[in-house]
């Protein structure tokens, strides 16, 4: 277990100790793998550091390679391709693409 500053954590790092608010609320459970949105949220909550699984003094594993927007859209397109004749499915497709791409751009 190693204490890691919130701005140094990488995608896929695993929380070793529950992250709690000053009042004792559990904000994130131990065992959760860091996603882009989680990193963003930790910063928004003002959490300065978290405990990450792994040995002290060693950097975390290499952050996951970020996919490009085109790769993400193409992957989603394969899932949605049979449904895109529907106007409502196109709305969902567009919203998911925008959401996923925005997540990637934000990063951790």
């Amino acid at each position: 277990m190693r204490k890691t500053a919130t701005d140094r954590i990488t995608l896929g790092d695993v929380i070793a100790v529950d992250v709690t608010s000053p009042s004792g609320n559990v904000l994130m459970n131990k065992g959760s793998a860091i996603t882009p949105a989680m990193g963003r949220r930790l910063r928004n909550w003002g959490i300065a550091y978290v405990y990450i699984e792994g040995e002290e003094g060693r950097g975390g594993h290499v952050g996951l390679k970020r996919r490009s927007a085109i790769e993400t859209k193409s992957e989603l397109y394969d899932m949605f391709v049979d449904t895109l004749d529907s106007a409502n499915m196109r709305k969902i497709f567009d919203a998911v693409c925008n959401y996923k791409i925005k997540q990637q751009e934000d990063g951790v």
Binding site: G31, S32, A37, M38, I92, Y99, K102
Partner: peptide, 16 residues
């Protein structure tokens, strides 16, 4: 929908 997805993701993390 994008805001809804953000809510779902936040709840999903807690459901870990």
């Amino acid at each position: 929908l994008e805001r809804l997805f953000d809510t779902i993701e936040s709840e999903w993390e807690k459901a870990e």
